[in-house]
Simulated scan of single mutants.
Amino acid sequence: MIELSTIKKHDLDNMHNVYDRWPQIAKEAFESEIEPVDFKDIDHVVFSGMGGSGTIGDLFASILSKTDIHTTVVKGYELPKTVDDNTLVVTTSVSGNTVETLATLESASKKNCKVIGFSSDGTMESFCTQNNIEHRRISKIHSPRASFPIYVYSILKTLNSIIPIDKQEIVQSLDKLENLSQKISSTNLSETNPSLDLAEWLNGTPVIYYPWGLHATAIRFKNSLQENAKTHVIIEDIIETGHNGIVSWERPSDMVPIMIEGTDDHPKTKERWEILRQYFDENQIEYKEILSVDGGILSKILCLIYLLDYATIFHAIRLKIDPSPVKSIDFFKKKL
């Protein structure tokens, strides 16, 4: 098992310390004095953001999929043509300088729709101020991906009139994050730590299977493995894989399957999980199952992301990699 001294040796920017405080960060964000906005007559919400900010849009799209509100997640430069006066465009950039998200913000400002921006400062804040657009400043904590809980719970509080999660469910999610923290944080570097167990098991290229309602967790897990552990990853919908991806296992490879499952997945989805298990067992393919907590969709997704993100930090440490630097992203951004 990994020792704390080894974590400190390789995690030079102390990312693990921030993750140890995720439940506290989330609670403080929800209890903050951030001012809510009551947008009226909204039937379409567009979430625009890249990377970790894009995962925030994926999360809220999953939540709103249970309502009559249509959602679109934009990870690029263009807004959908369906944007109208009943649309709310939510732009999120932790740095405030993400060029793709700034392009959608500028485009939204010229349309007859509602708009709000979330950032730590940067060009987004100044653009919103100059164009009389609602904006909320939310601090960056360590890095955009590590800032996930402060942004999620601040946006939840700001847009509570649009995102219909009652206070009881939010409190439940905070409690479950706190309970999970005691199991996965750097204070429990033992075989009972599920994040550490997953990191110790990982060897090869992960293939992450997920059900439709938990797609945000798979995308986030992929992103965090790529950024923290500098690892190639594949993600596949469990229903779709039975029509194509399953054939890939007919050849030997270094791929390792990970199944992200919800405690109350659709009965047909549960049937697919069982078939996939049988297939792997019969073909002697080792796999890992990650089960969500019980509770609402917010608790399920947030706790899965917390567990899986921490696993990517531990995996980076096992590979003797500092999880914080993203030199390739810095290279890419300088060229834009």
Score class of each variant (00 low, 15 high):
Ile162Ser: 00
His142Ile: 10
Arg145Leu: 13
Pro164Ile: 12
Thr158Trp: 04
Gly122Glu: 02
Pro144Ser: 08
Arg145Ala: 14
Ile150His: 00
Met124Trp: 06
Val115Phe: 06
Asn132Met: 10
Lys157Met: 12
His135Ala: 06
Phe118His: 02
Ser126Met: 00
Lys157Phe: 10
Asp121Phe: 00
Ile165Val: 15
Ile141Tyr: 11
Phe148Asn: 00
Ile141Leu: 14
Ile116Glu: 01
Phe127Lys: 03
Ile155Cys: 07
Ile155His: 08
Met124His: 05
Ile155Thr: 06
Ser120Phe: 01
Ala146Asn: 14
Tyr151Gln: 07
Leu159His: 05
Val115Thr: 12
Ile165Leu: 15
Phe148Ser: 03
Ile163Phe: 07
Ile138Ala: 09
Leu159Met: 08
Ile116Met: 04
Cys113Arg: 07
Gly122Phe: 07
Val115Asn: 05
Tyr151Phe: 15
Asn160Pro: 01
Pro164Asn: 12
Ser120Cys: 07
His135Gln: 10
Ser139Gly: 08
Glu134Gln: 08
Asn132Phe: 09
Asn160Trp: 01
Ser119Arg: 07
Ile138Lys: 01
Arg137Asn: 07
Ser126Trp: 00
Ser161Asp: 12
Pro149Thr: 02
Ile162Trp: 02
Ser143Lys: 11
Cys113Val: 10
Thr158Pro: 03
Lys167Phe: 14
Thr129Asp: 11
Ile141Trp: 06
Gly122Cys: 03
Ile138Trp: 04
Glu134Ile: 00
Gln168Thr: 13
Ser143Gln: 15
Leu159Glu: 02
Ala146Lys: 02
Gly117Asn: 09
Gly117Arg: 06
Ser139Leu: 08
Ile163Cys: 06
Leu156Ser: 06
Ile116Asp: 07
Ala146Thr: 15
Asp166Ser: 12
Ser120Ile: 01
Gln168Cys: 03
Asn132Arg: 11
Met124Ile: 07
Lys157Arg: 15
Phe118Asn: 01
